[in-house]
Amino acid sequence: MADKKATREALGDELTALGAVREDLVVLTADLADATRVEYFRHKYPERFIECGIAEANMMGVAAGLAATGKVAVASSFAMFAAGRAFEQIRNSIGYTELNVKIAATHAGVSVGEDGASHQCNEDIALMRTIPGMTVINPADYTEARTALRAAVEMNGPCYIRFGRAAVPDLSAEDENYSFEIGKGRLLSEGKDVTVIASGLTVAMALEAKEILKADGIDAEIINIHTIKPLDTELVCASAKKTGCVVTAEEHNIIGGLGSAVAEALSENCPVIMRRVGVEDVWGKSGSAGALLDIYGISAANIAAKAKEAYLAKKNG
């Protein structure tokens, strides 16, 4: 079994590593240094760490200003208060300006847990995806989150990266062929009957679902789409053409996120039967991360069930 670690740990660890090689790197927080783990960077580079207080909108504007004068600014908060609260500041001061700001958003999705619906951001990917020029990344595990953050800091321009609070297996660390490129999906396991496209913490679930489906004689292909924008349309369509049916799985509203991005690509290029696993346009609630993921059907079992449904619909089509 792979080690379990929350992807937010990668944010703190990789920022600290980058701090040594990138003197132009500055990190901002809005009274959430510890929970987001950017505290690790503060510890090492206090002079390049900017505490903004509980004022996310201002923080985004300040990050834009820092970037406009040549710095790489990483602005961090919970997804709800970064993408949500400060959407319009991100859109106009960071997106429209194409500035070099990386928005590091932790505590996304229902796996936030007990804080409940007010803090469970299931809309961030939808919001960020509609901003022209915004790169949107949702890493699957600790290793991928570190790699993605490094790539985001190396690229020029605005980028939104989503990190989670819940511990997830670090599968990428055990993958000998691991490679990461922004905008390139990863074919994790080949199959011929149905394509499962996952992102973030659903990637490990999708691999589990593959085993469940095997018992039913269904051979699933598993793809990790870490970059939701720009979407790897080529990979998505090639797989859809091969299997003839697709299931997406995400910890996000099924409206506007990965499921929508894939549906857009498929419907224009190679329409196939499709099912979406995710939060089905309802509000979150309090509970443990594990309990909530089950309640909202973000699980290996539900991914397998939806994959079977799509497969049968295709077969009986």
């Binding site: 509980i54 619906a117 007010s118 309090s286």
Partner: peptide, 28 residues
């Protein structure tokens, strides 16, 4: 408190808890 089926959510919910006049949790 803070259990999935409880009317006492992690942050106040005006539709779940009698006496709560406004749902809050996002500061400001």
């Amino acid at each position: 408190l803070r259990k999935p089926d409880s009317h006492l959510q992690g942050h106040p919910n005006m539709h779940k808890t009698p006496g709560v006049d406004m749902s809050t949790g996002s500061l400001g």
